[in-house]
C-alpha cells in the first residue's frame, strides 16, 4: 500500500500530460504571432534596403531628394528616388488632421464627463464607438464626393490635395482620439475633482487646472494613436489626395503620401526592379514611423505612470 502510494506520488498522471499539452499548444500559438511580427519586420526591412544596397542609392538622396522618378536617371547618373515629397506630405496631412481633431476630441470628452447628462453622454459615446468601426473606404468615398468638390468650389483647382486629405483623416481619427481621451479623463480620481470644487473653483478652473493636467499623458497618447492611424491610412487618403508626386507648395494642389504611392505603385511595377524596390523603401519608412509612434506612446505612458506614483 505504502509503496504504491509513493509510486503514485512520484510518477506523472493524466493531469501532468494535460498540463504539458496545454503549455505546448499555447506557447506554440504565441510563437506563431512572434514569428509573424519578426518576419514582417525582417521581410520589409530586407526588401526596403535593396534600394540602397543593390542600386547603391544614397540614403540621404532618398530621404531628402525632391524628384521621384525611379525609371529615369538624374544629374548624378543614378535613378531619381527622392522620397521627400511623399514624406513631407504624409507628415503634413497627419499633423494637420491631428491638430484639428485634438480640440474637438477634448471638447467631446469634457462634454461627456462633465456637462452632458447620463443619457446624452451615452448616446454620444456609442455613436463615436460606432464611427471607430466605419471602414476607411467609406471615409474616402465621402471625401471624394463631398470634401473634394467643397475644396474645389472654395479654392478652385481640382480640389484634390493635402487639405482634402487632412479633412478626411480628421473625421476618420476623431472617434479614436475622442474615445481614448474620454478614457484618460475618466481615470482622473474623483477626489481631486471634489477637492477642487470644495476649494471654490469653477467647473472650467477644475477642468483646466486639475483634470486636463492630470490626464495630459493620456490625452497625448490618444493624439499619437490618432496620428499613427492617420500616418498609416492608405485608401481614404489615396482617394482624395490627387496622387501627384511633387513637393507640396500649398494645401490645395494634388500631392502624394507614402501610403497612397504604395497603393497605386505596387501593382504597376515588377518585383525585383528598382522601381519596385523603391516602393518597398517607402514601406520601410512607414514601418519605422509606426515603430517610432509606438516608442513615443511607451515613453509617455512610463512618464505618466512615474508622475502618478511620486
Amino acid at each position: 500500500m505504502k509503496n504504491s502510494l509513493k509510486e503514485k506520488f512520484l510518477s506523472p498522471s493524466k493531469q501532468t500530460y494535460q498540463e504539458s499539452f496545454g503549455k505546448i499548444i499555447s506557447s506554440f500559438c504565441i510563437l506563431i504571432i512572434i514569428a509573424l511580427v519578426v518576419s514582417i519586420l525582417g521581410f520589409v526591412t530586407t526588401k526596403g534596403i535593396d534600394t540602397f544596397t543593390q542600386s547603391k542609392i544614397n540614403v540621404f538622396d532618398f530621404l531628402f531628394g525632391n524628384v521621384w522618378s525611379p525609371s529615369s536617371t538624374g544629374a548624378n547618373g543614378k535613378p531619381e528616388v527622392g522620397a521627400a515629397p511623399m514624406i513631407v506630405t504624409s507628415f503634413t496631412v497627419t499633423l494637420i488632421s491631428a491638430a484639428i481633431a485634438t480640440p474637438f476630441a477634448i471638447a467631446c470628452a469634457i462634454f461627456m464627463t462633465f456637462i452632458a447628462n447620463n443619457r446624452g453622454s451615452r448616446l454620444l459615446r456609442s455613436t463615436i464607438e460606432l464611427l471607430v468601426g466605419i471602414p476607411s473606404v467609406i471615409y474616402g468615398y465621402i471625401g471624394l464626393t463631398l470634401v473634394v468638390p467643397l475644396v474645389r468650389s472654395i479654392y478652385g483647382g481640382t480640389g484634390f490635395g493635402i487639405l482634402a486629405g487632412a479633412i478626411v483623416l480628421f473625421v476618420m481619427i476623431l472617434p479614436t482620439v475622442t474615445s481614448l481621451t474620454v478614457d484618460s479623463i475618466k481615470s482622473v480620481p474623483d477626489y481631486y475633482i471634489k477637492a477642487s470644487y470644495g476649494l471654490g473653483a469653477t467647473r472650467w478652473q477644475t477642468i483646466y487646472k486639475v483634470v486636463l493636467k492630470i490626464s495630459l499623458p493620456g490625452i497625448l497618447t490618444a493624439v499619437i494613436f490618432g496620428m499613427t492611424r492617420a500616418f498609416g491610412e492608405a485608401l481614404a487618403v489615396q482617394m482624395v489626395i490627387g496622387n501627384s508626386i511633387t513637393m507640396p507648395t500649398n494645401l490645395t494642389t494634388p500631392a502624394s503620401t507614402l501610403t497612397s504611392q504604395l497603393t497605386t505603385g505596387i501593382g504597376n511595377t515588377i518585383m525585383g526592379t528598382l522601381q519596385n524596390n523603391a516602393l518597398w523603401s517607402l514601406a520601410l519608412v512607414l514601418l519605422f514611423m509606426s515603430l517610432f509612434f509606438n516608442i513615443l506612446i511607451k515613453i509617455i505612458g512610463k512618464r505618466g505612470a512615474a508622475k502618478y506614483e511620486s
Binding site: 509513493k6 506520488f9 493531469q15 501532468t16
Partner: peptide, 16 residues
Amino acid sequence: YEGIDINSSKVNVYEV
C-alpha cells in the same frame, strides 16, 4: 505525508 516529502518538486502536485 505518509512518509513522503510532498514538497519535493519530483512529487506529482495533482496527486497531492
